[in-house]
Design a protein around this nucleic acid. Structure first.
Length: 309
DNA sequence: ATAAGGCCTAAGAG
DNA sequence: ACTCTTAGGCCTT
């Protein structure tokens, strides 16, 4: 086993691991106690994921390294992030959790907007994630008309049923299935696993990727709006799901997924941004939330409104 | 280009 | 205990 520690005070803007991983951005991590999205943080719980066949575990701890009494971090800017893995995982941990983003600078540069300030203040240390593209794509196809807890259950089920099993430290972990593994599933199987009407979408999209017909990574080289348009060729992917994949996986920090929560935010706080269509309203709210990092703002506002915190 | 109806299903709300 | 509504929308017409 390889292990490492990343001091949180060296990260611009700190880190709130709980809010980063349980705010409905990524469904590719699981908490060791299996109780994610229950509304209660488990301050020192391990979270784990599998990337390129390597198991990665992370947890947040307080106090300086080597202090056995150090427990819960006092706030998002102290303590450390510990990781354990089958490989030297520090680079991938930094990438997946976007630890090199200067969150403080992003917050400081945000527009002076009451709701946004309140959201940034309330959830200090929450970072965007950078998920592997295929897993992110399938996750958000599963997300339509679904609560975050159940989305997570669906994605976990797909990993358990179709992904590679990997042993690490006496435990068995499951990678998210490859496109080919998921394309081998049938609609009936996925319906039995509780995916409902999303079942054929998942199979057909997996087939498209497995057959080389298209790949979400192809969108990375395009401009923002053409990239969103590109992703909607996948079955089960409309503008909203496409924006989620662009924001949480493909590096488009300006993407603002217009979900039910953001629509209500537009209605209540930014009524002048309502333009009658997804594309036009999206453009207006993106400008209002600061353009370049509007997606960061979206994620904070979404989390703020959804949790009521 | 935009609008209406149907869709799986389990957890909450009443 | 039961019904009704809702949940990070998308596809087809």
């Amino acid at each position: 086993m390889e292990t490492g520690t990343i001091p949180v005070d060296e990260l611009g803007g700190g880190l709130d691991l709980y809010r980063t991983l349980e705010s409905g951005q990524s469904y590719l991590w699981r908490r060791s106690d299996g109780e994610m999205y229950g509304g209660s943080p488990a301050p020192e719980a391990w979270y784990h994921t599998v990337v390129d066949g390597e198991v990665i575990r992370v947890r947040r701890r307080g106090g300086p390294e080597g202090d056995p009494t150090a427990g819960v971090a006092a706030d998002a800017t102290t303590g450390r992030l510990e990781w354990e893995s089958t490989t030297d995982a520090e680079p991938i941990v930094r990438e997946l959790l976007r630890l090199d983003d200067d969150l403080e600078a992003i917050v400081d540069a945000a527009p002076d907007d009451p709701l946004l300030r309140e959201a940034y203040e309330a959830h200090r240390g929450m970072r965007l994630v950078d998920d592997p593209a295929f897993g992110c794509l399938i996750s958000f196809i599963c997300s339509t008309q679904m609560r975050v807890g159940r989305i997570h259950t669906m994605v976990s089920t797909l990993a358990r049923e179709y992904g590679d099993a990997i042993s690490f430290d006496g435990e068995t972990y499951h990678a998210f299935p490859t496109p080919a593994q998921l394309a081998a599933a049938t609609e009936a199987e996925l319906r039995d696993l509780g995916l409902g009407y999303r079942a054929p979408y998942v199979v057909r999209t997996a087939e498209m990727v497995a057959d080389g017909e298209a790949h979400p990574e192809e969108a990375r080289d395009l401009a923002y709006e053409p990239a969103r348009e590109y992703l909607t060729r996948f079955v089960g992917v409309g503008d909203k799901v496409a924006d989620c994949v662009l924001l949480f996986s493909l590096g488009f920090d300006e993407a603002v997924p217009l979900d039910t929560w953001l629509k209500s935010a537009v209605e209540e706080y930014y009524p002048d941004c309502e333009r009658g269509s997804y594309a036009a309203t999206s453009r207006a709210i993106r400008e209002r939330l600061g353009g370049e990092y509007a997606g960061y703002a979206q994620t904070y506002i979404f989390h703020h409104l959804r949790t009521g915190e």
